[in-house]
């Protein structure tokens, strides 16, 4: 530190030797205030102080804290501004926003969650009996609704292929929906899709739900090869919220595909 001190402002030269004691709470009230006031107005001395703290942290003398999870920067702005748009509000981003240390972001996320929860309750068709766990559904195209086994042929849905900046490229990919999308009893949004269109492995499939009194919400999953050749599947299985469960009408589902 002594070499650096030579080129410092005179006041910095007086303050910097006090920093180790300041770090250990070893200064009196007046000296503490002087160091505090100085650091608040001096970035170079604050950086020296930061270096001292880092040395202490790296030595293991203080227990490491768990850093708060910062939302993905790509999606951060959408937390505050998106009200629908091409993909709707990403459910995953909303979950991140709920954990944000920013009170405004958190409040906003809670408000959105409430709206979405209410909208979901209105649109879901309740299960007539507890459905089997999604991952174990083996029957193809059979969906039980309102107590009757309604044989339903597999539905087809087309997904718009989007560019990196989420604009439509004009291409579409056809998917087969093998089971009606649902929110399970334990509060998870679940959907399995299958396609035979090659060339999109690793793309993210976004499944947006249009809601009446709330912004559209989107769930996502990666497209991967199926066990049989020439087919690709995506399984979307995301936690939504407890207390809402039922089948999601297919007419409300919109698909998009993007490399993300």
């Amino acid at each position: 530190m002594s070499t650096q001190i030579k080129n410092l402002e005179p006041r910095c030269r007086e303050i910097q030797p006090r920093l180790p004691d300041f770090l250990r709470w070893g200064l009196g009230a007046v000296a503490t205030g002087e160091v505090q006031g100085h650091l608040l107005t001096c970035q170079p001395c604050s950086e020296v102080y930061g270096e001292l703290i880092m040395e202490e942290v790296e030595s293991g003398a203080v227990p490491l804290r768990t850093a708060p999870r910062v939302p993905s920067p790509d999606w951060y702005s959408s937390y505050l501004s998106v009200r629908g748009g091409r993909l709707g509000m990403l459910w995953e981003a909303l979950g991140d926003a709920l954990k944000s240390p920013d009170v405004n972001v958190k409040d906003w996320a809670e408000e959105q969650m409430e709206k979405v929860g209410e909208a979901l309750r209105q649109l879901l068709t309740p299960f007539s009996s507890p459905p089997p766990a999604f991952a174990h559904v083996a029957t193809r195209g059979a969906v039980r609704t309102r107590g009757s086994a309604a044989k339903k042929s597999r539905a087809n849905l087309e997904a718009d292929v989007l560019s990196a900046d989420l604009e439509p490229t004009g291409e579409t990919v056809a998917f087969t929906v093998e089971e009606a999308p649902r929110v399970s009893i334990d509060g998870r949004f679940q959907l399995q899709l299958r396609t035979q269109t090659a060339g999109y492995e690793g793309y993210t499939v976004f499944c947006s739900l249009a809601l009446a009194e709330a912004p559209a919400i989107s769930f996502s999953g990666k497209l991967r090869s199926a066990s049989e050749a020439g087919a690709w599947v995506v399984e979307i299985d995301e936690e939504v919220m407890k207390g809402v469960a039922g089948l999601v009408p297919l007419r409300l589902v919109k698909l998009a595909l993007a490399l993300k």
Partner: peptide
């Protein structure tokens, strides 16, 4: 994203601890 997450493990917890210590002085 994986690199970003790895960064989290390697660096962020230490830096966050530094930030808390820095603020605790005030």
């Amino acid at each position: 994203d994986e690199a970003r997450n790895r960064m989290w493990e390697l660096l962020w917890h230490k830096l966050y601890t530094v930030a808390v210590r820095f603020c605790r002085g005030f």
